[in-house]
Design a protein around this nucleic acid. Structure first.
Lengths: 119, 119
DNA sequence: TCTATATTTTGATATTTGTAGAAATGACGG
DNA sequence: CCGTCATTTCTACAAATATCAAAATATAGA
């Protein structure tokens, strides 16, 4: 029961929900997610940890970046398929999706560097 | 999106999750749920309100009691079916189920009266 | 090995949320 | 109508959680 509850809890927060929906498009590194959600890196990392513990996503080192993707079981896709059917207002998710399509680990690391310099 | 998130949030809390699972057995009044979960009536009422707003359950006056039942759309049963598949540790839920089978609005109101007298 | 970079962890803070008791509401039976 | 009973709402508080900045960790490349 606890396991299922932790899954629901993980999906019951807007930023984490958006992360999971973004990962349906493709796998993403931490800073890519960060650039779409516009929240701090540490917060994104915390959310990813929680999603990972719930078994919804998996992270794997790839060169300089840790790429996160949806868990490859049958449960997660089934759950998201049902959730998809219930979705009404999808504006935010569509916006996120467009940003994901334009993003890449290289680009968003450049962006973060610029932001850092401005400070 | 907000609607789906509120559903997940509603299911992402142990007591609310247990309530929903109990309601799969049959419809229940507030004090029956209260007697199974062993938390205060006002807290149960708050949880029921949240579940109701999320569209997971519906309440209806029936004589002295308000009977709550699962929402009668196709989404909720589908969601719970998938969730059921993922359930591993079901001890708590089985215990709840047994208590539900023994309970009735009449019995639990008598129980509450006794508790009140003891105070 | 040294430096730059991506991520995680830590510590601190503000907000949200679960909880209970008391008061208010609403409904049934005499 | 009036009292009883089931439920909801209000108020207050403790615990959980989302958040960020800074420090720590890890890794790739020079």
């Amino acid at each position: 029961m606890k396991q299922v509850i932790s899954i629901m809890k993980a999906l019951g927060e807007e930023n984490r929900f958006r992360i999971v929906m973004m990962l349906r498009e493709r796998s993403l590194c931490v800073c890519e997610i960060c650039s779409v959600l516009e929240i701090s890196i540490s917060t994104v990392s915390t959310h990813l940890k929680q999603l990972s513990h719930a078994g919804l996503i998996e992270g794997q080192k790839d060169g300089r970046w840790v790429m996160y993707r949806l868990a490859e079981d049958e449960f997660v896709p089934d759950l998201l398929k049902i959730v998809q059917r219930r979705l009404t207002d999808t504006k935010q998710l569509e916006r996120d999706r467009k940003l994901v399509l334009k993003a890449s680990p290289e680009k968003c690391s450049a962006l973060l560097r610029m932001e850092l310099e401005r400070k």
